[in-house]
Design a binder for these strands. Structure first.
Lengths: 241, 241
DNA sequence: CTACATTATCTAAAATTCAGACATTAAATA
DNA sequence: TATTTAATGTCTGAATTTTAGATAATGTAG
């Protein structure tokens, strides 16, 4: 959540980013906690600059808020209920932070701007969790990965937004080949399978899963991966192109 | 395209509606032509009132612009390129209609409001073309159904919007059972098949198509339809529920 | 009553999916 | 160094689904 100052944004329109990562059989979402009194968790959000594509805005917000760049990102849903506003959350935040923020915390103009009803475009990003070192910015107390099934209560409708993003991740996983974007550049067949099992929360048969994935015809098989374990070394694969 | 006056709309956010109908083996889109000099075709569009859900806004716009109500409607994509604006179109319209509109045609405030860069949420609606009598309102010279493959050149990116809507119609047709919403309440198997063949622009085998559709398990079979033709009468079906 | 046109259904072949068995192999162990 | 172990890689036949063709059913016309 940026506090808009003189920046030339489109009013009442925001972008919320759901950043998925995968680690140790857990599907995770990157959630910053705001650096204020009170437990305020909020998806990385921001606004659209007047002369900026919305996709570019999503990229910029993602980069500015988390340091993540050059990654897969896609819009998935617009959240536009009538009462959808920051006001309740902000009032609570200001109330709990009177001492540091003063009576209002931001000037009236800012407050009026940001507490209006907002329509928000949801984007989801898929990252290699090992390659990303989330960048904590001043506004954050922390920025951490949470299991998608054990998210903290977030502000506004952000928990719903994540749920909807997960729906779309499942729908598009084969179609848009997005599973691989959650893994490192090279990975074993077992790793892909465990990722699928996590995303869908159900087991897949190993033999048939391998066939299904290879039949997608998008992977190159590389040399074997010698893990040091007392067993046959698995092949490594890499997304072609 | 409403010309907003004092109405309390969210700025720079619009809704564009792609209304699909089906008639005589043609997939059609309802497109109004504006009642001005110059051939201005524009999808039914409008804005979101401050205290209104975006879905409700889409319903209202659809109803107000075409008379269509109580119909299936769904958001499918947000169009938000940086330069996305009415300005070119409006300038051309004002230029061609100086005589009736005066030098500017609307006051400066309106003009500034409406020529800003707009982000638009695309909705598509599916209607029974026989049940709908499109309501021509004052701003329209006409409102007609066009074959989706023979649309007139429309303003702004409206032709792209229809193309994207068609993509989503195809993707969701089985999943969301939306094909049936383009037919009358009761229909024959042949009619469904022809609709599918039109939407996907390819033939389906009659015997297997019937099985596929019946296996969806969402149709009730009614009495036969006696057409007067010298052949076996087909059964009628109706979407259950 | 027969011919015709079209719809409805059945059936076998082909393709795909599914489940289990078997083969391979890198490291550990004896 | 041979054997065992634990995992990966591959094969195969059964079950299921899809496809394609054939056959049965039926309302009207002549």
């Amino acid at each position: 959540m940026d506090f808009p100052s003189e920046q030339n944004y489109i009013e009442q329109l925001s972008i919320d980013c759901v950043i998925f990562g995968y680690h140790q059989k857990q599907l995770k979402v990157l959630v910053p906690k705001l650096n204020f009194n009170g437990d305020f968790y909020a998806l990385p959000s921001g606004f659209v600059i007047q002369d900026e594509d919305i996709d570019a805005a999503a990229d910029r917000i993602l980069r500015g808020r988390t340091g993540i760049q050059d990654t897969y990102i896609d819009q998935f849903h617009v959240f536009g209920k009538a009462g959808r506003s920051n006001e309740t959350f902000l009032d609570k935040l200001l109330e709990l932070n009177k001492d540091t923020l003063g009576e209002k915390g931001m000037n009236k103009k800012q407050y009026d701007w940001i507490t209006k009803r907002f329509v928000s475009i949801g984007y989801y990003a898929l990252v290699d969790i090992n390659k990303v070192i989330p960048k904590k910015i001043a506004i954050d107390a922390s920025i951490d990965w949470y299991d998608v099934r054990e998210l903290p209560p977030m502000i506004m409708d952000h928990n719903e937004i994540v749920a909807k993003a997960l729906d779309h991740l499942r729908i598009n996983i084969d179609d848009k080949l997005i599973a691989f974007k959650l893994l490192s550049e090279t990975f074993t067949m077992k790793e892909i399978q465990e990722l699928y099992e996590t995303v869908f929360n159900k087991p897949f048969a190993r033999n048939n899963f391998q066939k299904k994935i290879l039949d997608l015809n998008v992977l190159d098989r590389l040399e074997k991966k010698f893990t040091g374990a007392a067993n046959k070394a698995p092949f490594l694969y890499r997304l072609r192109g």
